[in-house]
Design a protein around this nucleic acid. Structure first.
Lengths: 221, 221, 221, 221
DNA sequence: CATGAATGAGCTTTCATTCAT
DNA sequence: GATGAATGAAAGCTCATTCAT
């Protein structure tokens, strides 16, 4: 939704504006993000900004849309390779790809996570809800398919599991940035961290944490 | 951290200010919440506000602290009753109590959730991080204890599981408000909804979603 | 519609703001009138302005309302004295009083005239239309009454004459400021000018400009 | 005063710009009229506009000048036909022609009326005052001539009557658009409306509204 | 001659906070 | 202790106009 003028800009300038804007949103959050600061950082006139974008919301929407496209471009081919694998392999690949993209684009990933987590965010409705349905449908179908293949417990609630798998998708990224990357000492190489995290999450989703009991397993209330 | 003057206020007035403030924060979010609007709603003088509270942050911190105390007061006695039960019974009780408190105090619960979810929130560091460590320590001990009792798989990563159990605690509340309460038709009574949600989440944490393979490892009906 | 705060101000300050604002509106017109300039002229903070008034429109509406009240207060008692006189005496008195008020309050009168003349003015609808109906009703009744008394031609169109008498009311003021006061040399004393103008207008409305023909004088085209 | 480039434009383009501009001025008034909007509506480049016109004022001046020429071209031949008729016949023809032109060119007529009514309009001085003198001179001569012919009262104030006849000229157009055209139901055909209005105004100017008294009717106090 | 990106002063408005009464 | 007027920085945004291409 930015205006034509923005796309007519020299690539370098466009990139500068995008980068500065992402930084501004990550640093201050949407409400406190200041267009004044952005234009000053970019050394562009305030009027110019409004020739590129409708307003602040338009700018953020552009950044998120762009990120979604970049991510899809990166993720799609890899996901295709495992499309016939079993459920947990696909899930693991999803998480790994998501983490890798986030590791390569940390600022923009953090920005997106902020938006995804606050339902009151001015763009949440427009951006997130719009895609939510598609994600849920995709996951539900995948789940049904996998149940039919005998990979999943047949008694799971599709809506619930779709919800929690999406939620955990976000959690993997947060865990990566806060818990693993937050430490001063890295515990392994870049990729090892990511694979470890993916494994942990998938293993958790797969088996839970209860100790398997011999044969009979317990009540629930 | 409010000033003495605030606590010298007539209970009714104090309550009014708190209720109005919670509503303001929930409706507009922290950044857009306006002290102008709050004092107007409460019919108190602008200057009075600053004799009660240091500033906007101080007000929010008070509301969150108060909520934490109210919640603790409500939860503690019930949790005591199950302190010797097995891990999943305790967890289930925790989630149920959290949900019940949220159902009884929906505005304040939503307000707290907003803060807990956005790390850039000005009070996140001061309020959340401060308690995080305690929660993690408590959960870690509980987990160790339960592993020792043979209730949990011994190979789980304590830090990871502590993290995800906290995260899911938030998710239960969100799921309750968005998915269950969001529907026009209730699927059961007030309490039934809550118990169903708690069961689903605990069951998920317990066993995951994979179909148990071969002979020993159970379904659960 | 200004806020309480404005009326709580010291009289001198209130007067200063009103006078400066009237000047600003007269000098620049509504659209180009600048609140920046007004507050600078008054030596008040920009924020203060918005504690007195909703916005620019609110300010103008206040000035117009105040003028209407001042004018009514001045005009009413004098009009009462002639209420039983013949139509043209009443009309003459109306025009004289209007002119005198305008002569005593020239800036505010010019400001009001500006508004009254431009139907696209943002406050025209709210201020002018609201009173228009009342004025027309009053004039229509007066006209009917005077026709019954045999003072006016019975074939006049009430709506048309009401319209033109209102329009000429405005014109008297304009004529006074532009034609008479506009000259460097005054042609007579203050009051003589006004009385001359009123006489001219009333005489015109009464008899038109055609040379009276012997006895019967009404062809029409 | 537009630049040569404007007149080198293809007729269609020139017409488009003029029409769009008239609409803009009528809709928003001079101050709020936006060149941004105009060029967007016309699909011309912003820079192009400034190669056609000096600035916004220049554009408006062109539109008014053009209208004056169009009107003169339309009115002159008809007025010629009645140049030897009596005063009120000429006046009536003037009003009818003015109304017809306005009815055929409503947007541009309304635009001109706006300008004519607000003395603070940036172009009032340059456009209106310039012609005012000519109009007054023309009317004064016509009046003198008609007095000599015995058609008008010899005691009228030439300056005053010139003024009021010009003012009423504007009023006829306003009356036509607001009172007659404003009604949902038309009271007669297009031309009948116009003729009725002209008759009413001329009759009013001719005879006023007082009931003719037997034989002599000219006191003046 | 056409283009349209760049400009920056200017606008109205909101805000948290202070402080004299 | 209560009051509420004063403050001015900062916000988002629009505008007519310029000028290099």
């Amino acid at each position: 939704m930015p205006k034509e003028t923005f796309f007519n800009l020299a690539e370098a300038k466009r990139k500068l504006i995008e980068d500065v804007a992402v930084d501004e949103f990550v640093t201050y959050g949407y409400d406190k993000a200041s267009i004044n600061r952005i234009v000053k950082s970019c050394n562009i006139a305030k009027g110019s900004f409004y020739q590129y974008f409708e307003d602040k919301k338009d700018l953020l929407k552009h950044l998120l849309t762009k990120m979604a496209q970049d991510k899809a471009k990166y993720v799609s081919p890899h996901l295709l390779k495992v499309k016939d694998a079993d459920f947990f392999t696909i899930l693991r690949e999803m998480y790994i790809l998501g983490l890798k993209f986030s590791a390569d684009n940390p600022r923009v990933a953090q920005m997106a996570n902020q938006v995804l987590k606050s339902k009151h965010h001015p763009v949440y409705q427009e951006i997130v809800n719009a895609n939510m349905e598609a994600v849920y449908t995709y996951l539900s179908n995948l789940l049904k398919h996998s149940i039919a293949k005998g990979e999943l417990r047949p008694d799971i609630d599709l809506r619930f599991v779709s919800y929690i798998i999406s939620a955990i998708n976000l959690a993997t990224v947060e865990y990566y940035f806060d818990i693993v990357k937050g430490k001063e000492v890295n515990m392994g190489s870049f990729d090892e961290d990511i694979i470890d995290i993916a494994n942990m999450f998938v293993d958790f989703i797969k088996k839970g944490i209860a100790k398997p009991t011999g044969g009979n397993d317990n009540d629930q209330g």
